[in-house]
Design a protein around this nucleic acid. Structure first.
Lengths: 140, 140
DNA sequence: ATTCAAATCACCCTTTCGGGTGAAGGAATT
DNA sequence: AATTCCTTCACCCGAAAGGGTGATTTGAAT
């Protein structure tokens, strides 16, 4: 941002000096003022486009790869660490058995966690839980 | 696009005429050429920023609310209309029975569709089907 | 020390899902 | 006319998921 403003100042100064120099040297004095204006307009249009994109590109990029976990919602619903783990693996399409293996616990434990999770998320199916989890940004 | 180019031409023309007018009227002739250049630079910088954003805004906007169905992939996998319907409702977290009611068909029909769907998507669970469907942009 | 939440697991039972097979009607293509 | 695909539905069976209850352990807070 600061760099862009400075660049603008510099560009303007350089342009003015250049024009003054040419004016005094009388090299291209016969060229009309309209020509200079056209040049300046063209140059600053390009600079404007570039600056505009530069200044707003971040808003485009950050929409893609980043995910910020909504811990506030997580606490509000009272979802525990383990329950959150289960939800994450659910969202990856794993079965309860596969989740159990991945977390090194028994199938029954996963079922308990998922049951409690469904209560807290106010859903009754794992697909709904995943949906809701994404809505509330509990999972990517 | 065309409108923007025309607008540019007009802006330039108007500006030149304005300057010429002022020059002959000698109203503000004592103002230096640098002042004019500064004005022009400022104006076209703004115009440039606006044009740049206008021309690229679409790339920003489409990331948000709109969804374009990937029909190519749909055809490649040979997924039929009905199967796609089932997938959509699955993604909303509905059970097979609920899907059956919504589509006015029997539960068995939905099961047939979902089975065929799983084969075509190469998955074995509805959560995975939903995942895959979103990846391939078959569903929003 | 007691209370409490989290995590772990078990057992029961019902519902839902998924896989396999078969079949019938209709539309489109060859 | 024959073929192919879509859609619809049925039945069976086993696996997975979900609901309910109860129990143990552990660590943290009161």
């Amino acid at each position: 941002m600061k760099r862009i403003v400075i660049l603008y100042g510099l560009a303007l100064a350089v342009l003015v000096f250049l024009l003054k120099y040419l004016e005094y040297r009388l090299i291209v004095h016969d060229l009309s003022i309209e020509f200079y204006i056209g040049l300046v307009a063209l140059f600053f249009t390009g600079l404007g486009i570039w600056a505009g994109l530069k200044l707003t590109r971040k808003q485009v990029v950050i929409m893609g790869p980043d995910f910020l976990l909504n811990e506030a919602e997580l606490n509000r619903l009272g979802i525990s660490k383990r329950e959150h783990d289960v939800l994450e693996l659910m969202a990856k399409g794993l079965s309860n058995k596969e989740i159990a293996d991945k977390l090194f616990v028994s199938l029954n434990t996963v079922k308990t966690h998922s049951s409690n999770l469904f209560l807290k998320l106010e859903v009754s199916r794992r697909t709904q839980a995943v949906q809701r989890g994404k809505e509330l940004r509990l999972i990517p």
